[in-house]
Structures are given as C-alpha cells and as structure tokens.
Amino acid sequence: MISEKTQKKIESIASKLPQRAAAMLSALRLIQDEIGHVPPEEREWLAGKLGVSPAAVEAVLSFYTLFRREPEGKYTIWVCSTLPCALRGCELLMDHLRHALGIREGETSPDRRITLKRAECLGGCDRAPVVQVGEDYHDVLLDLSLGTAKVSFERVEALLEKLT
C-alpha cells in the first residue's frame, strides 16, 4: 500500500477540487511515482477515496498511455516515431536501440533495467529524433555530419550508460 504521506497528498488534492473525482489523474500519477505502476489494491483504494466505482478507475487507467497497470523496467525509453521524427531518422535509432538492448519494442530487458517503447509526437520535434527517458528529453542521437543520417553510437552508448 502507498505511504501515508502520499495518501495525505491525494486527500489534500481531492478536497480542494470542485469534485473529488477530479483528483483521479493526479492520484494515479502519485501512486505510480511511488510504486512504479498502479496495482489492483491501490485501484480499489482510490475508487473508495474518490467516491467512484472501481470500474471507473480501470477505465481511466487503460485509456492513458502513461499509466502502467503492470511493473516495467526501471527506465522506459520512449522513442518518438511521429512524422517530424520519422523524417529525421527515428527508425534508424529504433533499430539501433533494439539491437543494443537485445529486446523488441514493448519488451523489458532481462535485468529489468530498460523497457523500450514507441512514443507519439513528444512535442519536441525541434530536437528530432527525440527520445524521452523518465522526465528528460534527449536529442542529437543522430549524426548528420557526413551528410546522411547515421546513428551516433557514442551518444546512444553514453545515454544507456547513464541508465543504471
């Protein structure tokens, strides 16, 4: 079960809003930040806390991409693959990451360190191709110096090394 501190935070958010259910997204985020995903027990608890049915919590959880119902790797690498990133070589990057990590899209590395996922436009197309890890965006993983797009292996390695 989540800590008392987080429970109190959720109560404080819910009590300040015109309707308690409006605390749903904030609460799910807080639970996930603490546990890593939103387990069944917490879903039930939250439904009671906000005065909604357990089904209502399930509906929200399954609708939003950023919520996790199951545990994932310690880090999730989101590779953006929408048009502006695709035009600047995101598939090369995706291929490279798949090989470097030895996993397919959506999978988690055997050491549970990294999950690899495909993202939709992250609103960072000025830095395309872009990847998001945790709260941070990373760019220039592609080397354009030779006139053609190539994955910058050093930069990708440096990023992966940071994720321990």
Binding site: T82, E120, C121, C125, D126
Partner: peptide, 11 residues
C-alpha cells in the same frame, strides 16, 4: 496539452 504532431511552441 500541445500534442498535434509538429507543434512545440506552448512548451
């Protein structure tokens, strides 16, 4: 919510 692909001004 800025999510239309190609848009990053509000950020």
């Amino acid at each position: 919510d800025e999510s239309e692909p190609g848009t990053f001004k509000d950020r």
